[in-house]
């Protein structure tokens, strides 16, 4: 257990005037582990991601992250330039709606190749080769490489977004409802894909979802959110099989058996 935490969040708070987005949220994330954040709408789970990714400015708290070069930085206090640079190379975000995470007016291959070009890749053949490789990994037929994402189904768009976000081999990924809005069979395929990728790449991931089945499949640990606060946390199977907090018990018992 001498391994270092990758991300340490303490006291993360976001207030919107009188309303609380999230309150005093704290957790650690280790390399290669998946943390699930569950809760219903308005629980604050997405607010956490927005604060960490810089989309929103947190009211209070810290989020120390260990960069690839070993330097420790506070994501909440980084200058925007540094944060955007980090976002290009060290961590990635998968949005709930794939259209928000893709460039809809460029081809699938260009979508996957862009992060490489942004980091200085200058060989067309190699860039295209890597793009094709990734399309294969996310099970998108290779002959779609020159098609526009608008011609893809929702599930395929989401897989394309995943390829685009992982192509630079980030060490940490944030996912916001990665299976939201997808058909059940499509969800299963996507989850299996994510499971494999997370394991193969040794990714650390924070997955925000309202779907407990997703967390059981993907997450090692779980945070249960309600009203902006963490009400329970622990090993995924333990929180889902032996929930302690009244709200967690309610959440777990409300899930219809398949």
């Amino acid at each position: 257990m001498s391994e270092r935490t990758l991300l340490a969040v303490r006291g993360l708070t976001k207030r919107y005037g009188e309303r609380t987005g999230c309150l005093d949220v704290g957790f650690d994330l280790w390399p290669g582990e998946v943390l699930g954040v569950v809760g219903e709408s308005g629980s604050g789970k997405t607010t956490i991601l927005h604060c960490l990714s810089g989309r929103t400015v947190a009211t209070a708290g810290s989020a120390t992250f260990v960069q690839r070069d070993g330097k420790v930085v506070d994501l909440l206090r980084m200058p925007e330039a540094a944060r955007r640079r980090l976002a290009r190379a060290d961590w990635a975000m998968v949005q709930q709606n794939p259209r928000d995470g893709l460039r809809m007016s460029v081809t699938a291959g260009a979508n996957v190749g862009e992060p490489l070009m942004a980091l200085g890749a200058r060989h067309y053949g190699k860039i295209r080769g890597q793009a094709l490789d990734w399309l294969g990994q996310v099970e998108i037929p290779l002959d779609r490489v020159d098609d526009l994402p608008a011609t893809f189904s929702g599930g395929m768009q989401q897989r394309l977004q995943i390829a685009r976000s992982l192509v630079t081999r980030p060490r940490m990924v944030f996912m916001d409802e990665p299976t939201g809005g997808l058909d059940v069979s499509v969800q299963a395929r996507l989850l299996d894909l994510l499971r494999g990728l997370v394991a193969d790449l040794g990714l650390a991931a924070i997955i925000v979802t309202h779907d407990l089945a997703v967390t059981r499949l993907l997450a090692h640990r779980l945070l249960v959110m309600r009203g902006g606060e963490i009400v329970e946390s622990g090993l995924t199977d333990q929180v889902l099989d032996d929930p302690q907090h009244p709200y967690t018990q309610l959440l777990v018992s409300s899930v219809l058996p398949p």
Binding site: R84, V106, A110, G113, E114, P115, M117, A118, R122
Partner: peptide, 13 residues
């Protein structure tokens, strides 16, 4: 921020 990846995307396309 020298975020010029998109210019090479144009050439790629």
């Amino acid at each position: 921020l020298e975020e010029y990846g998109v210019m090479h995307v144009r050439l790629y396309e």
